[in-house]
């Protein structure tokens, strides 16, 4: 589903963020990308949703090299990839329902579809009762659940999460990770960039370790290797 070959990314200052990355992720997998800050985890996710372009290499998603996508094709790619952020990025002036509906609205979904799918997504993350509250009335964990609901409401086949538990306490972090696991069980490919060692070790999933931009380890049922 995602095939990455000889991927190389350098930022303007000449710093190599990723060096010769080769990685294949199959449909329905759950993958942790781990590494210290600056190891290249976020860069890798940004490349997958084509927020940035690599200097060398290719990224094939659904069999298509997304490096060669035309600008107008990018939205279509992103409708198939959900994104969860460390800082939630919710719209504070809208209620939870509207925040989740946002994904559907911008893709031109009908009101009927929105009324059907948003409650489904909200009940999946356990927030159906809080649909009409504003984000600032929710706890951090609940806000992250909204962010997850927004990412999955249009049923993307890939879900990317960039440090989804970075701003949360350990108990809440576990809940969010369980939620992402549930989503994976329901069929989505889930890729989580994190440096939460306890969680990674707990779930015993595939672990890809990045260090200074290089892929140093890739294990099925792995644990967090503190490389640095």
């Amino acid at each position: 589903m995602i095939e990455i070959y000889h991927l190389h990314k350098e930022y303007e200052q000449g710093v190599a963020a990723l060096k010769d990355i080769n990685l294949t992720i199959d449909r329905g997998e759950f993958v942790f990308i781990v590494g210290a800050s600056g190891a290249g985890k976020s860069t890798l996710l940004k490349l997958i949703i084509r927020e940035i372009l690599p200097n060398k290499g290719s990224i094939k998603i659904f069999g298509r090299d997304i490096v060669r996508l035309k600008n107008r094709e990018i939205p279509l790619l992103r409708r198939n990839i959900g994104m969860v952020f460390q800082d939630f990025r919710l719209l504070q002036d809208r209620n939870i329902f509207e925040n989740v509906a946002f994904t559907l609205r911008v893709t031109g979904a009908s009101t009927r579809e929105i009324r059907k799918r948003v409650p489904l997504a909200l009940s999946l993350v356990g927030l159906k009762e809080k649909a009409f509250k504003k984000p600032n009335e929710l706890s951090g964990g609940e806000q992250q659940r909204v962010c997850v609901a927004r990412a999955i409401v249009n049923r993307p086949s890939i879900l990317l999460a960039d440090e989804p538990t970075g701003n949360l306490d350990p108990g809440t972090s576990m809940e969010i990770m369980n939620l992402l696991h549930d989503i994976n069980v329901r069929g989505a490919t889930v890729i989580v960039a994190t440096h939460a060692k306890d969680l990674v070790d707990h779930f015993q999933k595939r672990v890809v370790v990045l260090e200074y931009g290089s892929l140093v380890s890739d294990q099925e049922r792995g644990v967090y290797i503190n490389a640095r």
Binding site: R72, R78, R89, L91, F102, T107
Partner: peptide, 13 residues
């Protein structure tokens, strides 16, 4: 922020 989120969830320009 709204525009950025729109871009992430696949809105066209």
């Amino acid at each position: 922020k709204e525009i950025m989120i729109m871009k992430y969830v696949g809105a066209t320009d």
